[in-house]
Nucleic acid binder design. Structure first.
Lengths: 346, 346
DNA sequence: GTGAAAGCGCTAACAT
DNA sequence: ATGTTAGCGCTTTCAC
């Protein structure tokens, strides 16, 4: 900048004014400065600007895994909102590790991000206290913060979605509906279990519940155990798309009704199409980041707790009636496709 | 830091030494400083450090769309390598827009990222000249830079993969093999077309080629046109997973052999399983970022041009023989699953 | 082993 | 309309 100033024969401040588009510069002078900038290939050092202004125009995003389509969709939405506010996105994957989550938050804060969007892995966020007090707003998304921390939160209607799924299977006549959940350390897994349990009422049977991180061997074993029961399940409710896919692979030809929580690409192309309760990952990301930017704009209101609706998408697998017997998976079932699915919508 | 210094009764520089783990500090003094740091909840301002040191420990990643599983996998690999080198990742999606790509690069450079990893959208990268000269290394991945820019590049074996796919279909007896490509502005689309053409030799028929961005209406129309030909294709080679999925939806019951470029999750669960030439997005990301960190470590050698191998994964759709007629898609075909696919590996 | 001073590149506040 | 000065929070250099 100093070089530009002397090349253009003006003072440092004038260059600064031109670079920042501040008013009160003679057009001719401004033009001379711009010429010097082009010639020298100058570009403002944002680090210095940040140091001076205290704002980085950067927000930090902590998610579980950017390569998971759900979080990728969420991340993309956050990115777009950030861009529209002139901000960049610093992102990191926690991999469901609370320590890593904390480390990422700490690192982001040390770099003075203007705000944070967090899909928490752990349930103790007291470490955020000092950052929040220091004026770095945070928004939690998909899962709430641990006790004692009250910040803006955007969740899905997990329990409601689970009830919807169970009611759908019940309406097809099922009374033995298994739940394949996920690691019970995950908030959404517990919420969905609660919704499932509530919707089943006296039909609930704890032997039809599996709460573990999906993996081919374990999920398959749980499924085998349930199907070997005297009164086996005729329908499956799977707690998220990873579980759904693991279960579909484990099922291999055994024909059970299935409704999954979480939409996924190609659900409509499977045979039969997979009925799901769809969340809106992009909506989560968008709403969360809009909340964050409202805070950055100065909103000091009480913490908001938003819940986004879910919706049932019927494609065939959830409409299979009970006791249809163990027939081939490709026995001429016409799968009602629910139309094109926009890429990555769930 | 000033506050910490006076709280601990030492000079600024001593605090700095403690924070950076520099040697030559009396353990007792260091302990006093650490206590003060904890008490005041101090954390170093990275922006100031950056300004002084000139290194941000941040790398910039420009990809097409973080919500695309292929790029998400690539991004995750880059993130992991970055983390292992103590760097953070600033990322942005170009959305296949050269202007946006350039804007992102410019912004990242203004923030003084230590290096760049770019999946280019455009084919003019002369704007990078000044940044490269200024010492910011860049690695191109998935697609090469435009003419005149010679930097480290990591590509897939696009032409070889296309030849592999075509040879596979030919070995099943097909002679009329259509190619559904993508927007010809995309490097990989052209490379794969070239491989397809080369592998077909005199069997090549330009009427069996569609080069357009996949979309249900357009791709469907192209497919209909080809299938209405007097000598219609009996097999399809699709140029990437988005095209593959679009084509599968457009096919709806019409039974053609199909081999796709690019693996995708659930390819094994479809009926029949979808045979693909699999790339390794995580490998691309990992190799590209390792190349970048080698540069950051001081490697001044000539630009490297790496090509990663692809491999054929047979699952059923590519093994359908020609002239099997127009029968129901669920007519008892046993789809040879190729085993579990690790989530998001393709 | 510790400290004082200079300065990274920029912008805010105050001249002129 | 333009210039001068101070200082953001840290690290570097050199002195003690």
């Amino acid at each position: 900048m100093k070089d530009v100033a002397s090349a253009a024969g003006v003072a440092l401040k004038t260059v600064s004014r031109v670079v920042n588009g501040e008013p009160g510069v003679n057009p001719a002078t401004a033009e001379r400065v711009r010429a010097a900038i082009d010639e020298l290939g100058y570009s403002r050092n944002e680090s210095a600007r940040v140091l001076r202004q205290g704002r980085t125009s950067t927000i930090g995003l902590v998610i579980e895994d950017i390569s998971d389509p759900f979080y990728a969709g969420l991340g993309r939405a956050v990115e777009q909102v950030a861009i529209s506010h002139g901000c960049l996105l610093l992102s990191g994957s926690s991999g469901e590790d609370p320590g890593r989550e904390r480390e990422l938050v700490r690192t982001f804060c040390a770099r003075r991000v203007d705000g944070l969007i967090v899909v928490p892995a752990g349930d103790d966020h007291s470490y955020l206290r000092s950052e929040l007090d220091a004026g770095t707003p945070a928004v939690f998304v998909d899962r709430p913060p641990g006790p004692g921390i009250d910040v803006d939160t955007v969740l899905c209607d997990n329990a409601g979605g689970a009830r919807l799924a169970v009611a759908h299977l019940r309406s097809a006549g099922h009374r033995r509906i298994a739940f394949l959940g996920d690691n019970p350390a995950i908030f959404t897994a517990i919420e969905r279990l609660a919704g499932y349990r509530g919707a089943l009422g006296e039909l609930f049977d704890r032997d039809l519940v599996s709460m573990r991180a999906p993996d081919p061997a374990g999920t398959g074993a749980d499924l085998d155990r349930m199907l070997a029961m005297p009164d086996p399940p005729t329908a499956l409710f799977t707690g998220n798309s990873r579980v759904t896919v693991t279960a579909l692979r484990a099922l291999r030809g055994r024909r059970l009704a299935l409704t999954g929580f979480d939409d996924f690409e190609l659900a409509d192309l499977l045979t039969p199409g997979v009925t799901v309760v769809a969340q809106d990952p992009a909506g989560l990301g968008r709403v969360a980041s809009e909340l964050l930017f409202r805070r950055l704009a100065g909103d000091r209101g009480p913490a908001q707790h938003l819940q986004l609706p879910v919706r049932l998408i019927t494609r065939g697998s959830g409409e299979i009636p009970p006791h249809s017997g163990e027939i081939s998976p490709h026995s001429g079932e016409i799968s009602p496709h629910s139309g094109e699915m926009p890429p990555h919508s769930g």
